[in-house]
Design a protein around this nucleic acid. Structure first.
Length: 491
RNA sequence: GGCGUCAUGGUGUAAUUGGUUAACACGCCGCCCUCUCAAGGCGGAGAGUUCGGGUUCGAUCCCCGAUGACGCUACCA
């Protein structure tokens, strides 16, 4: 056992071969929640030993993604590419202790061996031929410049087991494990070597990572044993799947967290959704029929998080549920907190509001309860922030098709102009009286006015909208009402 | 192919860990509210817990087998 008298230490160790994807974001989140819950340390480590596929741009993308969902780290980021000598040293001690050996087989030879093994329906494992080379002789060959890799000498027979905090006891027969490569011929470590050396050196107490590593863990356990070091606690988190239950990938659409940011999702919603994917708060005993709580802010998640609430089966990423979390969170934000996100959408859409801050906040507050997505503010909600808006053709077709209604609206505008009072109540009573006078249903004028004022068939209560827009705008937009169909029909 | 893991409505999860009409949320449908649409309220459809055996008075829960999905099986991580 590692030294548990000190604080728990966990890490997120992405490899910068792509953007931060939702699966990675969730393991990062779980590690972070665990660290914050236990008062431990959250370390960020970049596993960039695959030089061909790693890039600085991806590193930045990952950091941005983490910041977006509100994850901060206490140590790092450390880069494995800058720690090569440590891994070489580790390989060296393994070599010296007889737990590893030099292998001179070329890639071509290995491929050939694999081919032969497969054709004779033997498992395609390395045949360990270099294991029998005398170590002194092998060292001489390497000295002489012959390229070689360092392989781990997996014990023959027996089995390797560990206790996973999520999956329970997991046991693998050693004969299933091949003598895996620790150090490549270029002196660059392989995943197993670098993770174990780093996890050891960074004094990690818990390894919380994707379940895709479950089958790799025995190899790492073997390394801990060979190094004579205690095992950390492993906790493997089930994977996130696409709607067709295959592993989430590009063809399922958005898979990086930045993609969801661009889709108009608010970070709290994404974090909340992710946290509940494969994890449920424990201990909160619920009576049958009693609703389950699902909306949690960051602090609540931290308070509730524990490893034993993690599920064992893979979860499907449900975009509809995410959309629901999004609308729930958008209405929970204060207008002040929401504004920067909205501004981001506005600038992406090249839209410029023309009201002052006071008016903008008032409009946001009015619109929040009906927003499902940040994009709404730069789309359907434009009329609340500027005179630069368009009429939705379906809305016009539905409520302003009748020229009589359109001219009535313009006439209504004149009535409003004659009236000095300007409030929700007075606007409503004037409209209703006007409708009665003209012998039309108030609803017809209300619906028509809504389209004239907002361009949309869907909006908050009409009179609240009027109060928000202000007398001047309402009069202008109503007076333009009689021309709307003409405007609409223009190309 | 070998090895491993998992399996509750369409989706995410519950079920005091062998005893409930199998619960909640999202989604879907209907009604109410109403100036529209959301939200909200009310109600509904949807699983008998992958299948087959066993243990037991009794299995979602324990055991065995099958199936399926996923993962690992690289000088990727």
């Amino acid at each position: 056992m590692p030294d548990f008298s000190s604080k728990p230490r966990v890490r997120f160790a992405p490899s910068p071969t792509g953007y931060l994807h939702v699966g990675g974001a969730r393991t990062a989140l779980f590690n972070w929640l665990f660290a914050r819950h236990t008062g431990g340390v959250f370390i960020l480590r970049i596993e960039d030993t695959d030089f061909e596929r790693s890039s600085e741009e991806m590193v930045q993308g990952i950091l941005d993604g983490m910041r977006w969902i509100g994850l901060d780290w206490d140590e790092g980021p450390f880069f494995q590419s800058q720690r090569l000598t440590q891994y070489q040293a580790a390989a060296d001690t393994l070599l010296k202790s007889g737990h590893a050996y030099r292998c001179f087989c070329t890639k071509e030879q290995l491929e050939e061996k694999r081919r032969q093994a497969e054709s004779s329906s033997r498992p395609p494992m390395y045949d360990r031929s270099c294991r029998s080379i005398d170590p002194a002789r092998a060292a001489e060959r390497q000295q002489a410049g012959e390229p070689c890799v360092i392989r781990f000498a997996v014990p023959q027979g027996g089995s390797t087991a560990f206790d996973d905090a999520v999956f329970g006891r997991v046991e693998f027969s050693n004969d299933e494990l091949e003598d895996f490569v620790l150090l490549r011929s270029g002196g660059v470590p392989t995943y197993h070597l670098s993770v174990v050396t780093d996890d050891l050196e960074m004094r990690l107490t818990h390894i919380i990572r994707g379940a895709d590593h479950l089958s790799n863990t025995p190899k790492q356990v073997l390394l801990y044993n060979a190094l004579g070091r205690p095992l950390p606690i492993f906790a493997h988190v089930p994977l996130i799947l696409g709607p067709d239950k295959s592993r989430l990938s590009k063809r399922h659409g958005a898979t990086s967290v930045t993609a969801y940011r661009e889709l108009g999702i608010v970070p709290e919603a994404f974090r909340n959704f992710l946290a509940l994917l494969g994890w449920t708060p424990r201990g909160a005993a619920r009576q049958p029929g009693e609703p389950e709580r699902e909306i949690f802010d960051s602090q609540e998640l931290i308070d509730l998080f524990s490893l034993d609430g993690i599920a064992r089966s893979n979860a499907v990423f449900d975009v509809d549920k995410l959309a629901w979390f999004n609308l729930e969170w958008i209405r929970r934000y204060t207008p002040e907190k929401l504004l920067p996100f909205i501004q981001e959408e506005w600038s992406k859409a090249g839209f410029h509001p023309d009201g002052d801050m006071q008016e903008i906040y008032a409009a946001i507050a009015l619109l929040q309860p009906r927003a499902r997505n940040l994009k709404d503010f730069a789309g359907a909600f434009r009329a609340y922030f500027s005179d630069q808006y368009e009429y939705d053709s379906a809305a016009v077709a539905k409520y302003l098709k009748d020229a009589v209604v359109r001219s009535l609206l313009t006439e209504l505008g004149r009535r409003y102009a004659e009236q000095s009072a300007w409030s929700e109540a007075s606007s409503e009573s004037l409209l209703r009286a006007f409708a009665e006078e003209k012998g039309v249903k108030a609803g017809v004028l209300i619906n028509g006015a809504r389209v004239a004022l907002t361009g949309q068939a869907v909006a908050p209560s009409l009179f609240a909208v009027m109060a928000l827009l202000g007398r001047k705008r309402v009069l202008a937009r109503l007076s333009a009402a009689e021309h709307i169909a003409a405007v609409e029909s223009m190309p």
